[in-house]
Every structure is written in C-alpha cells, then in structure tokens.
Amino acid sequence: MVSNIMSYEIELVENSEQIDAFHDLPFQIYEDYPNWAPPFRFEIENIFDPEHNVFFDNGECERFLVKQGNRVRARFAVMNNPARDRVLEPRMGGIGFLEMENDRRLVRKIIDFAEAWHYDRGYRAMRGPINFGENDTYWGLLVENYDEPPIYGMFYHPPYYKQLLEQTGAVKLDDHWSYKREFAKPIPERMKKITDRIESRSNVSLRSIDMNNIYRDAEYIREIYNEAWSEQEIDEREEEFTELTRDTVREMVDKLKPVMIPDSVLIAFVDDEPASFIVCVPDLNEISRETGGRLRWWHYPKLLWFKRRARHLRSLVYGTKPKFRKMGLEALTFTRGIQYTREAAPSLEYLEGAWVSEKNWLMQRSLEALGCRHHKTHRTYKWEF
C-alpha cells in the first residue's frame, strides 16, 4: 500500500527492510537527546505480531513509514479494537508509535492519513499515542520532565512533539503520572506503624515470590489481577480491561525471571487466600541503552548480572481483590517492597511508579504518603473528525 501526499510517501511496513527502517528512525530523531533509551526491538515486534498479540483476534493494526525521496522522516501505527473502542464516548480508534522530525507539515499529513484510515472503518474519532495492547506500557506522550531518562516500558519524546500534535487539533483526553522515590529516603514513621499493624493481624501474611514455584505464584498474581482490574474505581478503565491469560502470564514470567529481584515481587494473603500483590522490575532500559535495543544471545550474561548493578526499579503492576480493599494491603505491599528491595539490591537509587491516572486520587495520596513525588506526565490526546 503506497499513498502519495505532496512530497511525502506513506508506505505500509511489510518487509524486513521496512521493519529495520521503522526501528532505525528513532536513533536519528534522538541523536541530540541523551536521556532517550531505545525500547527492546523484540518487544515492539511482538506488539505487531498476530502470533504474540491477542489484540489481533478482535482488532486491526498497521504501521507505516513516511518518506521523502529515499529518506525516512517519520513512522506511526494505526489501530482499532471495535469491542473495546465502543465503550469510549465517542468511539475512538488509535494512533501510536509515532516518531517524527520537527516538521509541522509532516505531522499534519500523518494525522490526515490516520483520520482517513479510521474514517474508512466507520470511526469519527481517534486517540493517541497509544499501544495496540494494555495501557501500562508504550502509551501516552511525554509532556513533563524531559531531563530524566524513561523507565522501562515508557516512551521518551522530544518537547516539540507536544507542540506539533496540538497544532493538528489534538485535545487532551487524559493524563497519567509517574511517581519517583529515592531508596535512601526513609519510610515515614506513620507508614511503618500502619504496615506493622496490618501485618500483625493473625489472618494476614506477606511473602516474596517463590522462585522455585514461580508459575504457581504467577497464577496467584493473575487471579488477583483479573479480579482487581475488572472492578475498578475508574469506570472507563474497567470497561477497557482485558483479562490476563495463563499463556500471557507465563510469557511475562519467562521474560522477567532472569532479572527479577524476588523481594520486589510480593504477595499478600488473607486467610491463606491470595489478596494483593505488587510486581517491580529493574529498569531494563539500562540494558537496552547498552545493546542498542537488541537482545542477542551474547547479551544474556548482561541480564544475569544486571539485577546486581541496576540503578532504577519500576513498579510494573499491582492490584488488590475488591473484597480486600480498604484493609491497607496496598500500603503493606508497597512499604515492604521498598524496605525488602533496598536490602536485597543496594545498588538501586530510585523507584519509579508509572501510569497513575490523574483521576486516581486514592493511589496518588497513597504514594505521596510513602514519600513518592509526581515527576513525569504522559498525555493521551483525542482527535474528532
């Protein structure tokens, strides 16, 4: 598929040469942005592979290069998932994985193309930047704090992206915040007392993930996650929820097991029933910087030693079953996670908790009570046409 628009040519990514160009472009864009870190190429490719991404079962996703002559000047992807999109008002498809040179006319052509793509499929609105999957990774545009590197699973963007997109008529849909906490900072005494009191209850227990029974514990986490995120405080997130499958969780475990710090993956039980959990992982962007986003067999020794030298930790996912909410289990898992991880991995400098909705005031207050501070914002925009 080729579409000519003035001096630009938009190509559907179909072959290995185009895939290489899709991944090579950001290295040109971010040459003057030292904080940028490339995501792992294999993770991005899995998103566009129907064999790895269950969203292709009910949706559509295509990615494109924008060329001027032989030069690639931008890239992007467009996507829809009708069952999920119709819970939005108005119904919205998506645009994502957008990287572009600083050219107002260029981004206008991209947005025009994306709007036409969606219009042909019966849509009259779209949102972005988004991922063709869940919104805990590779979602949103960085609009605050360009002075620190991105944590694993989060994109970094130049400041001019915000200006260019807003000139196309994009309006804010929602913001998600990242919180930061230095490990050297002591836990507030109030939080220590609260968590000590919670853990002293006879029917409450807490432990790290058992690496010898990791798939069993992963099933406990999957059970909690599916109950927790199918019944949320924020209705629109509940409606967009997709249940984690056993295969998906097993793939995640296999990927993260080499770098996992057991004391940063905690499960709380109430009357021996899995009730709450938190999963934190070392910042794999520290590895991707060293390998240029590749992960080949000779890089695996880096992974095996990485957790002993990692400097940053990301809280990747957490959850509490609805019937156990308001027991303070979130405070327990977060507080003990900080305490245990600091002892287990003294090289760590800070924890970043990404993807807290601006509407989720309860989580915001909880993180702030732990001494975390809001330090980054990723924004999702919408276009109506």
Rank of each mutant, 00 (worst) to 15 (best):
M1C: 12
S7M: 12
Y8G: 03
N15R: 04
D24N: 10
N46K: 05
D49T: 06
N58Q: 13
G69H: 08
A74E: 11
M79I: 07
N80H: 13
E89L: 13
G93E: 08
G94C: 10
F97D: 05
E99S: 08
D103K: 01
V107G: 04
I111P: 03
I111Q: 02
D120C: 09
D147C: 05
Y156C: 09
Y160T: 05
Q167A: 15
A170R: 01
H176A: 10
P186I: 10
S205G: 05
D210M: 00
D210L: 01
N213T: 03
D217F: 01
A218F: 01
I221T: 04
E223W: 00
E231D: 14
D235Q: 11
E240V: 08
E243K: 03
L244D: 08
D247P: 01
P258E: 11
V265M: 02
D271M: 01
R294P: 03
H299D: 15
P301E: 05
K302V: 13
W305H: 09
R308Y: 15
R309H: 12
H312N: 10
K326P: 02
R336D: 02
A344Q: 00
A344W: 02
P346A: 10
W355R: 00
S366R: 02
E368N: 06
G371Q: 04
G371F: 05
H375M: 12
T380W: 04
Y381N: 08
